[in-house]
Design a protein around this nucleic acid. Structure first.
Lengths: 117, 117
DNA sequence: TAAGTAGGTCGATGACCGTCGATTTGCTGC
DNA sequence: GCAGCAAATCGACGGTCATCGACCTACTTA
């Protein structure tokens, strides 16, 4: 594979000369990068990936009381992970009496998937 | 939207009865979840997302000396982020004399993208 | 050989994260 | 009202992360 000559520094150059001119990263893409990082960060824990996985495998909404026993974790910890996912816009929640139901909002995941492709 | 009756607890149930039977998450999916979380975690920082973005926009390999001035960060910090990406299998590196060139290994990103879809 | 340079590594520091026990909130049924 | 329950929040603890200055390594060239 050949090196991209447009970007690569010269193999031989006068000592002291910078190897390449500074490149500015566009601000628009900086914002998109921040958004992608936010989503990815929320998925950066095995428990949260599994939570998303379970929620996606059920078209409807899933009760928190069904999610907790899936893990070797206490209820507050699962609740915390669900909040992280919700803050990232990956899942939504809805209260019905005593129970809370969570569901996947596909937009965020699709956004990340689109950026990856 | 209706609630998935197979998973949802009854709205009215005898007090003291568990709202739902325990569900076991398959181990195979646990491993996949861990792999997805590893990749996502590596992308869970705006700097690393931008690094991947820049590397992807250049078909060949990009010198580290071009990556550093893109950010308001010192060289050791950029080097650290590149190592995180490399440890996750997202990028690869190659030394040529004084310079180090980094490039994207598409497999990991495709793996995550596939799981997201 | 010596000087200069690119980039990786180390150690420290402050911030953040995952986890849990304890508590609180809000709802249900008696 | 009260007791009981599901889930969220709080506070604290230990571990990890992002960042940097200092240093080290490897290479080039004079």
């Amino acid at each position: 594979m050949t090196v991209d000559l447009l970007l690569s520094p010269k193999t031989k150059r006068p000592a002291g000369e910078p190897c390449c001119e500074p490149v500015v990263y566009p601000d628009v893409e900086r914002e998109q990068a921040a958004r992608m990082a936010t989503i990815a960060k929320a998925l950066g824990d095995p428990v949260r990936v599994q939570l998303v996985d379970v929620l996606r495998k059920h078209a409807g909404k899933v009760c928190v009381c069904e999610l907790v026993p899936l893990f070797d974790l206490q209820q507050p910890t699962v609740s915390h992970h669900l909040k992280v996912l919700r803050d990232a816009g990956i899942v939504g929640s809805e209260r019905q009496g005593l129970w809370a139901y969570y569901y996947v909002i596909p937009d965020a995941l699709e956004e990340l998937s689109a950026w990856l492709s």
